Amino acid sequence: MINGHSDITCTAFLGTRMVASGSLPSVTSIVKERLEDRELLQLLIFDDSTGKQIDVHFRGKTDDLAADESPRRAGRPKLGVVSGEVTLLPRQWEWLKGQPGGASVTLRKLIDEARRAGEEQGKIRASQESVYHFMTAVAGNFPHYEEALRELYSGDMDRFYDSMEEWAPDIKSHIKKLALDAFPKRNPG
């Protein structure tokens, strides 16, 4: 199997045609069974969470396939504490020291609050980046590509989708999937 990569969901394209979508082991198995070796050379597989291309070597049996990704670095446990340096003015340190729980507890609370407040913007930004990476790889030469990118980042969903009118159906469909969180939510009104 694809060692350590079974949790990645991805989509495979041969030209403008979507060939398979799902977990990385499932997608690699499907394309290995359905496509000829010469087609595998033209196949592009994209990580659905980032829109970036994943390199998979199709040598050997399906069970031996391996994705080329950076190995995970050893580090502190998932729930462990990571130390770092923070530079503050003296008055800020004094305020932190006077807070219940001390500086560390207060900083963690402030960070968590800021993360919650910026969560929607973060989702929008991450979705836009996924769309950007995928579009750049497969649609860079398509008509109205630059216009579509401008509309993506300006937040104009209708004009974004209108600019892709002439694009291949599988490409448009995958972009719509990646762009689910790319635009601010509309308030009913």
Results as ranks from 00 to 15, higher is better:
S127W: 05
E85R: 10
M135K: 03
P71Y: 03
E113S: 12
I111P: 01
Y161W: 15
F142D: 07
D68E: 09
V82D: 06
E165H: 12
K32M: 00
A66F: 05
G140Q: 12
K123C: 04
A12H: 03
H144Q: 11
P77D: 13
I2T: 05
S154C: 12
T62Q: 05
L149R: 13
L180H: 10
E166F: 08
F13W: 04
K97W: 07
A67C: 11
R116G: 15
S6H: 10
L24T: 07
F183A: 11
D47V: 08
V27K: 00
R59T: 13
G75S: 09
D181Q: 14
F160W: 07
D158S: 15
D162A: 15
S49P: 02
N3K: 10
R72Y: 01
H133G: 06
G140Y: 09
E119L: 13
E69K: 08
G98W: 04
L180Q: 11
T16H: 08
Q53G: 09
D55H: 12
W95V: 13
S127I: 02
L41K: 10
E94F: 10
E146Y: 00
S29P: 00
E147A: 10
S127Q: 08
T106C: 09
H133P: 05
P143E: 11
F134D: 02
D158Y: 14
L43F: 02
E94H: 09
L65Q: 06
A126P: 05
R108K: 13
E113Q: 14
A137R: 07
G98D: 06
E120A: 13
Y132I: 01
P169S: 14
P169A: 14
T11V: 11
S163E: 10
M164H: 05
E166C: 07
V27A: 00
A67K: 03
F13Q: 01
T62S: 08
R115L: 15
M164A: 08
E147Y: 00
G80V: 11
S127K: 05
G122I: 01
L180V: 13
H144P: 04
A179P: 01
K123F: 06
G4Y: 06
G189T: 12
G75Q: 07
Q121C: 06
R59Y: 10
R125V: 01
T50K: 03
K123L: 09
K123G: 03
D156L: 12
R59F: 11
V56N: 00
F142Q: 12
A126T: 08
G4R: 09
D63M: 05
M157R: 15
S21C: 08
P188M: 13
T28E: 00
P143R: 04
F183H: 06
R34D: 07
L14M: 05
F46W: 04
V131E: 02
Y132R: 15
M18R: 15
V105L: 13
R115Y: 08
T62P: 01
L107A: 07
V131K: 00
K177G: 00
K32V: 00
A139V: 02
P184W: 08
V82M: 12
A168D: 14
A126M: 05
K32L: 03
S130N: 06
H5A: 15
G102V: 14
